[in-house]
Design a protein around this nucleic acid. Sequence first.
DNA 1: ATGCTAATACTCGATCTCGAGTAATCGAGA
DNA 2: TCTCGATTACTCGAGATCGAGTATTAGCAT
Lengths: 231, 231
Amino acid sequence: MARRKVANPLAFAVLGSLGERPMHPYEISTMLRARGKDQSIKVNYGSLYSIVSSLEKHGFIEAQETVREGNRPERTVYRITDAGRAEFDDWLTELVGTPSREFHPLEAGLAYLPGLPPDRAVELLEQRLAVVDVEIAEMTAMHEQMASAEFPRIFWVESEFRLALLRAESAYVHRLADEIRTDKLDGSAFWRMAWKHYLDEGISPGEQLKDPVKYFGQEFAWMQAVPPEAR
Amino acid sequence: MARRKVANPLAFAVLGSLGERPMHPYEISTMLRARGKDQSIKVNYGSLYSIVSSLEKHGFIEAQETVREGNRPERTVYRITDAGRAEFDDWLTELVGTPSREFHPLEAGLAYLPGLPPDRAVELLEQRLAVVDVEIAEMTAMHEQMASAEFPRIFWVESEFRLALLRAESAYVHRLADEIRTDKLDGSAFWRMAWKHYLDEGISPGEQLKDPVKYFGQEFAWMQAVPPEAR
DNA sequence: ATGCTAATACTCGATCTCGAGTAATCGAGA
DNA sequence: TCTCGATTACTCGAGATCGAGTATTAGCAT
């Protein structure tokens, strides 16, 4: 079993919502949207009902009553239990106090960056920056608005944090794109050559790595010493 | 159907590995570890075999041969197909060129930060920093080592990127913890008071929000104007 | 009165995921 | 030569996941 009996982050948001007052599932989902929590927690409305019943099965919440309005489907109102409050508290403590290994998709992309021709890589990185930088500008503007409306910062620290990460992403990607473009990134000359040999003469990168001196020149003799597993 | 027929990032790494030469699944997994790709892509060895058969079903890879050594279980060696190369290329293009909405667990935690007493929040943030800052130091040291071994940077940009994100996290969390501790975070006085009322007199936060002037003083009269849904 | 769009409130099942479990072999030391 | 832990190589199924689909109703313009 996973460490948490119900591990989906949406379950955390459900517990947080029911901690305030009893609600039925759909009400939870609209409330999360109204408060913008769906910006910080992935809310998938198809998962909501299975998560609610899983929480109930594990005793974290319980059905309080079933109401029907007109011809609408029945709605079950749930309330949080003591075990549920404890679980929420423990979960919140963990989320804040313990870093967990995250895998950013760009990390995966960068790990295989030499799989793209250098110029194409620069193009794509700039394409990404166009989107990211617009988002940064929008978030910055929104923060200024909230600040001038005197909406206390404590209520939007999660958004500040996200902005900090986006800025770091932007700064790093800007620098990386520049360094590839100007050949200042160590290894990029070699990357450029390998792609040239491949495109002009059809020599696969694997082939070239077997004889670096022949394909890249004397200054790459050291490569023969690097175990292939490290590359 | 999902946009990608096989959506798990591990499938991306499998395609990348088989793009180099044919291999059997277990060999892929050891190779990914040897090259440290498991640091940038989440590799779950229980998923590996289902992902490989899914890739085969969709025509991205195909079985080349089945070999048996001694009494060991049979090993099927797979090779990538043209469709598989195209898929890998398309995927890599997407990972590098298109930002995708990520949900950092700390964002979820921060979204419910007022659910913790302020002093406890500071404690937890500092506990997180202790771990994060050690990791930053270790990564920095490792980068220095790789640089002095003249291992070209192009082969570890993914790690540089991760370090940039970690540094941003650390900087933001440092600042936030300081601001809560010194009451410089707008709203923290109010947060502190609400918890004091709750712990001393058992008045729930919901109750207090209904009459902010009574519980927090005249300067919080504006709160009555803020629709409860925004909080 | 009528038609239309948006919002409400869910259901379903095909696919995915992952950790625990298994079983064989290798290799270092006693 | 024997043991025992580490490594190799893989299997399995319970539970999670998610998007597409459905059916109803409210609100609003015509």
